[in-house]
Design a protein around this nucleic acid. Structure first.
Length: 487
RNA sequence: GCCCCCAUCGUCUAGGGGACUAGGACGUCAGCCUUUCAAGCUGAAGACAGGGAUUCGAAUUCCCUUGGGGGCACCA
């Protein structure tokens, strides 16, 4: 019984996403969250959210909210948390005290100025920068002296001076570091807050995290973490360092790369389901051909073994394509629902709000076929809403001369006037023969009508557009076009 | 400078010794469809970084070089 329980808890997957609220999460951060979440769901495990707010100086107001919002947007629900490290300071202090007591850590009184100039000097001499361990072996007297001078010390870890530290990375195999390349890093800052290294280890242990799936950039500090686990006598979790997502210039994603915050993609009209699908494909693939997968399929098939080791460059074109596919896959009702906020927000202010929902529903399918993002919908459909079309007369005359355009439009007005059944099919049944009568190619004639009716040369199919616009609007617009030509 | 990771079309990737004249997707180009646009369909161009080694056989294994990335804070 006990054994069964042990085996079970051993197999229990508990992963965490542990962002720091020093900025808004970008694609890379969220991809890490997503891999953790999918891994948890695949294994019927737990996905834990932990906010690593131990840097008081760099804390960004509202960042935590944006983190939560980003996760919610993508449907990455968490089973525990959010925990806040700022509320757990006592735990880190206890761990640091223990290490101090066991002489596995020591207090360091060096000033930041000294450390800075030391680093400068090391760089100048092309030496690897790192703490020179001046305080590592202070005598009792020296320490008393420092304490007396009122300096608030930091606590540093006593890294082993020789030997190796290694661990098995689930993606990369055995990773070995020479201890001599590690310096005595800080565990506890002088403000009483822990550094990432300490807090991370304490929490991962206390929260019984089974797998740490984090970005590649952490690989270099992994030996410090392993050493810390050893010093504290704890079993380290399994590590997997995920490939990073790079910007188009192949460097680490940062503010420089434009739309970094994931919430901006929401504003730009991307669907969370498309983003989810796209993101999982950045570093993971099911097979040699599947690109489109539902969330359920992803959960079902996800595995660490199929994660690639190489960093990936974010390819926005592909995201856009995929978003378009998801957009077209929506029911027209669903599409309308999602597009309406964008219409309300971006349609020109001269257009009355609230919009006529019935009318919106009618025209949405025409935009749905063409949009790659929801943000494009207002632009694609604006001509449906404006009272007066604004366009250059020249557009009417791009394929015909003036006399012919006038003659054609007049004939069209006459036919329209007498048309009872205002639908795409009957409209086409009227205008196709009319083109023949006018001795115009359909391309030319329909092109003329298109400009008159939409003010553009590129628009949804003419007769469907006319159907949605309605007889009154169409007549009005043809007459407006005639006015433009006659004047 | 030191340490670590990585390396297949422009980009995302499949490939885990013979099934590879290296597959798919985005993008690009061409054609078809067509009242324009979009979508769709068909096709084309496009990659195993280089050099050694192992092997009957290497995109696949090993080594070196080169290239790219990351780290080296009282930041995470």
């Amino acid at each position: 019984m006990l054994e069964a329980k042990l085996a079970m808890s051993e197999a229990m997957v508990r992963v965490r996403f542990a962002p720091s609220p020093t900025g808004y999460p970008h694609l890379g951060n969220i991809r890490t969250a997503l891999f953790n979440w999918v891994f948890a769901r695949h294994n019927n495990g737990f996905f834990i959210l932990r906010i690593e707010d131990t840097d008081v100086a760099r804390l960004v107001e509202g960042a935590t909210d944006v983190i939560l919002e980003s996760l919610r947007w993508l449907g990455l629900d968490w089973d525990e948390g959010p925990y806040f490290q700022s509320q757990r300071l006592e735990l880190y202090r206890e761990a640091a005290d223990r290490l101090l007591k066991q002489e596995l850590a020591y207090k360091c009184y060096c000033s930041t100025e000294r450390l800075e100039s030391m680093r400068q000097e090391q760089m100048k001499r092309k030496q690897p920068p790192g703490y020179d361990r001046r305080c590592r072996n202070l005598t009792r007297e020296q320490r008393a002296e420092m304490e007396a001078s009122g300096i608030t010390p930091v606590v540093r870890f006593k890294s082993p001076l020789e030997g190796q530290t290694s661990f098995n990375d689930l993606l990369r195999g055995q990773i070995i570091f020479e201890n001599s390349t590690l310096d005595d890093f800080v565990l506890l800052k002088s403000d009483g807050y822990p550094t990432y290294h300490l807090a991370n280890i304490v929490d991962d242990h206390l929260m019984e995290i089974s797998h740490v799936l984090r970005a590649d950039e952490w690989l270099s500090s992994a030996p410090r973490h392993v050493l810390l686990y050893q010093a504290l006598g704890w079993q380290p979790p399994q590590f997997a360092h995920l490939p990073m997502i790079l910007g188009a210039d192949r460097s680490k994603l940062s503010k420089r790369h434009g739309a970094t915050a994931i919430t901006e993609y929401q504003e730009q009209g991307y669907l969370p389901e498309a983003m989810f699908n796209f993101l999982v494909l950045l570093g993971w693939a099911l097979d040699d051909k599947t690109e489109l997968l539902t969330r359920e399929e992803i959960i079902k098939h996800f595995s660490l073994e199929r994660i690639s080791r190489a960093a990936a460059v974010f390819n926005k074109d592909k995201l856009e394509w995929m978003n378009g596919v998801y957009l077209r896959g929506l029911s027209s009702e669903e599409f309308a629902q999602r597009a309406i906020p964008f219409l309300e927000k971006d349609l020109q202010t001269a257009i009355n709000r609230p919009l006529d929902i019935g009318y919106v529903r009618q025209l949405m399918p025409l935009a749905q076929e063409r949009a790659r993002t929801l943000a494009e919908v207002p632009q694609l459909s604006e001509f449906f809403f404006v009272e007066e079309l604004e366009y250059d007369v020249g557009l009417l005359l791009s394929k015909t001369d003036k006399a012919e355009a006038i003659r054609s439009l007049q004939a069209s007005v006459a036919r329209m006037d007498s048309l009872k059944d205002w639908n795409a099919a009957p409209l086409e049944a009227v205008f196709r023969p009319l083109a023949e009568e006018l001795k115009l190619k359909t391309g030319v004639f329909f092109g003329l009508l298109r400009v008159a009716v939409t003010g553009r040369t590129a628009a949804p199919p003419l007769f469907q557009t006319m159907e949605v616009l309605g007889k009154e609007r169409c007549l009005k617009r043809l007459r407006a076009a005639l006015d433009k030509l006659v004047v």
